[in-house]
Design a protein around this nucleic acid. Sequence first.
DNA 1: TGCCGTCATCGTTCATCGACGATAAACGAT
DNA 2: ATCGTTTATCGTCGATGAACGATGACGGCA
Lengths: 117, 117
Amino acid sequence: MDMPDDDLLALRLRALAHPARLAIVRALAAADRCQCGEIVRGLTLAQSTVSQHLKVLKEAGLITGTIEGPRSCYCLDRESLAALATQVGTLFAALDDGRRNPAPRADALVSSLSTPI
Amino acid sequence: MDMPDDDLLALRLRALAHPARLAIVRALAAADRCQCGEIVRGLTLAQSTVSQHLKVLKEAGLITGTIEGPRSCYCLDRESLAALATQVGTLFAALDDGRRNPAPRADALVSSLSTPI
DNA sequence: TGCCGTCATCGTTCATCGACGATAAACGAT
DNA sequence: ATCGTTTATCGTCGATGAACGATGACGGCA
């Protein structure tokens, strides 16, 4: 019930919250591994832009990138994605929770909001 | 398996991808309904900023806001949130999918990427 | 050695975000 | 009618994001 890592959750959600990056993640899910050029050819974006998106996903820990000779191979980081799925699942479970227990209202709020943004 | 609404998914993820808005959603989940002022007092943000965040969440369809006399009452939009949970679940399920079926590789990519960003 | 393909990074531009204070709108109470 | 409370909106500012072209680094190949 603590949450110092709302920041981490937000970061990962944010990394995912772009159509191009969603497309990339789906593509990696389907192909399991692939190199930058394939993605560039599949999208209508400049190579540098795709590279940037890959960087964002990598920095969020959602994918891994390893250089293989002259090219780069990207894969999903299944562990991080599983962790993210868990966090998201927990969040949505909490939402359902509130539905069932009408809740003590007044200080349900203060306890939820006591975290400094 | 089509995806014109990757944009919608991205929009909603993006709405959720901010610590303050996560806190707000959690608070609403706990309290079920509450007014802006309560949230403002719970967070360390200016009232106008909180109002902005509420607006973002409302425009993403994640919460509903109705004015009640001089104040506004906000609630979670449970239906939209359930829909979002479904979309996210589908996404993560797809990720696991790729894990099991090694996949035809080559055109798994092109089919995944055929969407115009 | 020198060229080419692949990818990352840099620098730039434009748009959007996050935060704030100030102001306006709506309402209840005096 | 006026005031105080509550909330939304406006305008502004700095920071970040998204996209691009150009350039650079690295490794294979002629």
